[in-house]
Structure formats: C-alpha cells, structure tokens
Design a protein around this nucleic acid. Structure first.
Lengths: 226, 226
DNA sequence: CTACTGTATGCTGTCGACAGAACACAAGAC
DNA sequence: GTCTTGTGTTCTGTCGACAGCATACAGTAG
C-alpha cells in the first residue's frame, strides 16, 4: 500500500522544482524581478499554482515576496550572509553532534559513500559539481535523526549555496574542504561529539571566511528590493 | 516617506493572523482538519487568499498540508517535539551568545522591561499569560542582531508553545522559569556569552523535561495525518 | 533644463467556477 | 456477519477574468 500509482505531482510542486533549479543554476540575476504572468505562460500553467510555487520558494529563502510589488530572486546583503552563516553554524554543529551520537553503521556507510562520490566528482568534473558538497552535509543531517533539523539545515545551505555559486567561491576551496570532510567523518565514526563539533566549527569558519572574502569586494550593498 | 498611508493589509495576511490566533488560542483540536471552503466562507473571503494564509501557517509549522487531502492543525508526535526541542536549544543558545556579545544598553533595558512585565503579569493574571514568556525570548533574539535567526527562532517557539499550551505545561513552571530568566538577563548584562550559554542550556533542559513529562502520558502516537 | 502632473500600461490581489480525485455510505456477494 | 463493489458527495487543484494600485512615460509649467 505504500506504492502510489496515481501520484500526480501538482503543478505547483513541479513549478517550484523547475524554478528552484533555474535559480540555483544561475539562470536569473540576483535581485531580478520575476513576473507571474510571464512565468506562468512560459511554464504553461495558470497563475494559481505558480503563486504557490513562488510562496514555497520564498519559504526556502530563494525569492523575496514584496507585497503588492512582485517577486524578486533572493539577493543577500553582506549582513544577511553573515546571519545565514551564524545560523548554519548552530544547525550544523547540532547536526553533527547528534550524528556522532546516533549514526548507525549504515548511515556511516552512506556518509563514506557520499564522500567518495564527491572525491571522484572532484577529480572528473573539476569544479563543476556544486551540488555534492552539500550532499555530504545533507547526509549528516540524515544521520542526526531529526527530520525538521534536516529540512531547516537544507534550506540554509541552499541559500548559502546561492551566494557561493554566484561569487564563484565554490571551486577553489573544494580540495581543502574535502580534507575537512574526511575529518568530520572520522569523528562521526568514532562517535565523538566534541571532536566532531570542534572540527565542524573550524570547517564552517574556513568556509564562511572564504565566502565573505569573495563577497566583500563584489557586493557593497546592492539593489535590495526592501 | 516611511509612512504608508495606503497600507491595505492583504486578505491573505489578515486571514493568517486570524487563524494563527485561533490555533494558538486553542479553538481547534490538534490534528483537526480545516476545510478551505468552510473557512473562506466564514471569513468572508475567497479561497485564493485563504490558501495563501494556510501556506504561510504551514511554513510556521502550525498546520500540515497534505497534498490532495486537506489541511490539518499541527499535531506533534513525541518524536517531533523532541526534534523541536533540539532545534530550539541550538537556536536559543546561539541567540543568547550573540545577545551577550552585542546587546546595547537600550536592548538590555528592553529585556529588563520585558521581564518586569512578565513578573507583573505573573502576579496579576496568574497563569493566564501564555504569550509573555516567549516575549522575553523574542527580545533576546532581537538583541542578537540576527533578523533571520529571530524569525526562525520565533517559529520554533510558536510551535512549542502550541504543544505546551495544550498540555497545560505552561502555568506550573512559570515561577521557576522566571528565576531562570533573571539569571539569563544577568549574564547578558555582564556580556558573558559562556555563562549565558550555560544558563540557557539549563533553562531549556528544564523546560524541555517539563514539556516531555506533561506530554508522555497524554500522547502515545496519535492520529498523525501522514 | 528641471520639476511636477496626468495618463497609460502592466501588475498583483482577489474572485467565482470547473474537473478530477478522495472519502463516505449504501447495496450486494460470499 | 464480513468483505467487496458501486454510487454520491465533498473536497482540492487549477483555471480564466476583473479591480485597484504601482510604475513608467509623456506633456507642461516654471
């Protein structure tokens, strides 16, 4: 009974998936206005499901809804990036502590596999794999055994990925980040929450520093729609 | 130019405010199904803005949207409550650490004032003030200087308040919680993040223990719509 | 040349209505 | 008496259309 043959995915969900991929794929400028009628006609759906899709993306922080004025692709000010990084640290530290305490052998195996996939992708595609690093973090959330934490952490990571991707900060740090990921995995394997927390904090501080450095010269307080 | 004379609040926002107040006020049963047509007609609006209001409430975790089956008032399983408490601890600890580092004298004054208001409300209304304790925590978020953290923390607190209110766990712990709040404020005044974190963890552990104790006998894995 | 004003266009917020799916209940088979 | 089946109803998801506000531009006064 768990198989749903008649699983018609609502247009709103499909539209949200498409738009999310477009935004993360860089098809829109940061802060760009998205016209409801234009999107709905181009997607071949009505405005009702499109609006719901945009609301969903707003919850994920990928777009900003300004009442009566329209929808804009998220454009994070340096202050907002700092806010996101602070929250990410808190959630990621919690996640890896829980993961170190609770991870089963199967989940550790998945984590290891995720890192191997990342490693091979790093070699083959070079910098063209912006999804994989977050995948490892997602597995950590999975191992933490907290569904809601996983959702919120994934949302934060997605928003940060949006900034990092645009600023080109993803590629350069991948090699070193991979080493840090290995250290994180080792701490989880040892079921050592304190070591895991410390290594995660270092990892995130390095990552955050890198993002802010890349961001500082490029963005000076741009055209925020608020 | 900051004054908006023509600030017509959209129906969707008004509906969300009304429904949020109803849910938190206990006018609906946990897990109860909410009919769109019934609500829209009773509120005197169409289904379009009502649906947006329900989507907004779903983002806040107050209702569950089940695709194709309807909207249900949130009903948290013990596991979900545990998940919420874990996230709350991470966010609240981050918030009070930031608040201890960054709080200005004015913000500390607001915190003190919030506690005084809570104290007087505790004496006059007894247990009939479920909003005030969270108000103090909201001020901490405000003092942390992180807008997004404030929003997320408020959302988590609101969800927990929904559980606590229904289980009647709010009233009994207010006296002791107030003492703990005073200790939190003192740590912020001293700008001592470490002490603030430790006291916050103790405070949240006490609160969480109390919630789980109240919850354990009442709920055994009820009719979750998933 | 600059600043104000009126118009024109496009947009969002909202509405009412329809199609298909999900649920509830009644009728019949074993 | 229990399980299956058929039917009716209600609901959600989606659609197209309208009203009011916001923005952009042209026109005019100074």
């Amino acid at each position: 009974m768990t198989e749903r043959v008649q699983q018609t995915v609502p247009y709103s969900v499909q539209a949200a998936d498409i738009l999310r991929a477009r935004i993360l794929g860089g098809e829109y400028e940061l802060g760009q206005r998205l016209s409801e009628v234009e999107l709905s006609t181009s997607l071949g759906i009505s405005r009702s499901p499109l609006r719901e899709a945009l609301r969903a993306l707003a919850n994920e922080g990928l777009v900003d809804l300004v009442s009566g004025r329209g929808v804009f692709v998220a454009d994070f000010s340096p202050r907002e990036v700092r806010e996101l990084l602070e929250i990410r640290e808190a959630l990621d530290v919690l996640a890896i502590r829980l993961a170190a305490q609770r991870a089963t052998d199967e989940q550790i195996e998945v984590l290891r596999h995720s890192l191997e996939g990342l490693s091979s992708a790093l070699r083959s595609h070079g910098s063209q794999a912006p999804d994989w690093p977050s995948d490892f973090h997602l597995c950590i959330y999975e191992a933490a055994g907290n569904q809601r934490l996983k959702e919120q952490g994934w949302s934060i990571h997605t928003q940060i990925r949006l900034v990092r991707f645009r600023s080109g900060a993803a590629a350069e740090r991948m090699e070193r980040a991979h080493q840090e990921h290995l250290a994180l995995l080792a701490a989880i394997e040892d079921h050592d929450p304190d070591a895991a927390e410390q290594r995660m904090r270092e990892h995130l501080i390095n990552s955050g520093k890198h993002i802010l450095e890349q961001l500082a010269p490029a963005q000076g307080g741009g055209s925020s729609p608020r």
